[in-house]
């Protein structure tokens, strides 16, 4: 199969393009999508699919989300574009009380087959309302799939699977990584949910992470390797379902776990990973289990302040060394 190097934003563009060509019931709705979307992730969709399937909407997040659900209930498969994750707060009823509940409340009569795309994370000094990572909130929400890719190939393959999924999928585009490049196949195959990617192999320590912070984790792992510490680096790719087997098997080998998250560490998904590993393996088999994330403060604007909050390769190296004892 032929591969080509593309940016992450191009990879997800190609994935959505492929699926809209394959299935005429797939369509995209959201602010500015007919103009290609805020990041160009829908560039050139309008001329190919027309205004009925590439719908630039009013700035009406409740209705973008709720209308997407309604359209799914009559048999179409909308991609609901939230533009920037933080704006989903204006559509929380439609997401949490409606989309996530409708199949259950109605005893299986409804299939809310939607993909909600929410580009998240710290990005270009955008301050507190355009930088959040609250993906852990949604792992707590029964009824949805939570997807958090970090590479072009994973983002593309997971988006294909998301569009084909009958379950509602919350797709967190790592917006700061949109310019990052990687190989993507010319025919994008779906990547199953709940299967982690082993980014690097090592026997001393397991580092678990996901989404936009992954490049920093890999950089840190390279530094650690130069210092004689070999880390297994696991990119979870999806947080619900998540690959508990892969993580537990790795920690069973290494005996040490570090979870790295861009999000606030307190009550973040890292806590779930640590708890699951300890429950599964028992404390005797785990010599260290640590979390690294942001302090529990909003994301500040000023570059030095934003930098201070960020998880960096240096902080990851330090946390890993602390875990080595």
């Amino acid at each position: 199969m032929s591969m080509h190097q593309v940016t992450l934003v191009e990879a997800v563009r190609l994935a959505a393009l492929q699926e809209m060509r394959r299935d005429p019931t797939v369509w995209v709705m959201g602010e500015d999508v007919a103009r290609g979307g805020l990041y160009g992730q829908y560039r050139d969709f309008l001329p190919e699919f027309g205004a009925e399937r590439v719908v630039s909407t009013p700035i009406s997040e409740s209705t973008i989300m709720g209308a997407g659900l309604g359209a799914a209930l009559v048999g179409t498969r909308p991609i609901i574009e939230m533009r920037i994750f933080d704006f989903v707060m204006c559509a929380m009823d439609e997401l949490v009380n409606q989309i996530a509940k409708i199949r259950y409340m109605f005893g299986g009569q409804a299939r809310p087959s939607v993909v909600v795309r929410m580009p998240h994370g710290i990005w270009r000094n955008s301050a507190a309302q355009h930088s959040q990572m609250l993906e852990s909130w949604f792992v707590h929400l029964p009824g949805v799939i939570v997807v958090t890719p970090s590479t072009p190939a994973d983002a593309a393959g997971l988006l294909v699977n998301a569009i084909r999924s009958d379950d509602p999928v919350l797709f967190f585009d790592p917006k700061n990584l949109f310019p990052a490049t990687g190989d993507v196949a010319s025919v994008i195959e779906p990547i199953p949910f709940g299967k982690a990617r082993l980014a690097r192999e090592g026997r001393d320590l397991t580092i678990v992470s996901w989404s936009a912070i992954m490049p920093a984790v890999e950089q840190a792992a390279a530094t650690l390797a130069a210092d004689g510490i070999a880390a297994d680096v696991i990119d979870l790719r999806t947080l619900w379902p998540w690959d508990q087997e892969a993580v537990c098997a790795s920690v069973a080998r290494t005996g040490r776990l570090l979870v790295v998250q861009e999000a606030v560490s307190v009550a973040g998904f890292g806590a779930e990973v640590v708890a699951t590993v300890l429950e599964t393996l028992g404390p005797a088999r785990v010599k260290a289990a640590r979390r690294l994330g942001a302090p529990r403060i909003p994301i500040p604007f000023s570059p030095p302040l934003e930098d201070a909050v960020k998880v960096t390769p240096a902080k990851i190296v330090a946390a890993a060394k602390a875990a080595m004892g």
Binding site: S62, G70, A71, T76, D93, N97, I102, F106
Partner: peptide, 24 residues
């Protein structure tokens, strides 16, 4: 397509159902 426990919750859903029906 369902009663709704949230006041006005059915409005966006109906609008979207209409949009889907029109598309189909």
């Amino acid at each position: 397509l369902g009663a709704n426990g949230v006041v006005s919750g059915g409005i966006p859903i109906a609008v979207g159902a209409a949009q889907g029906l029109k598309m189909l």
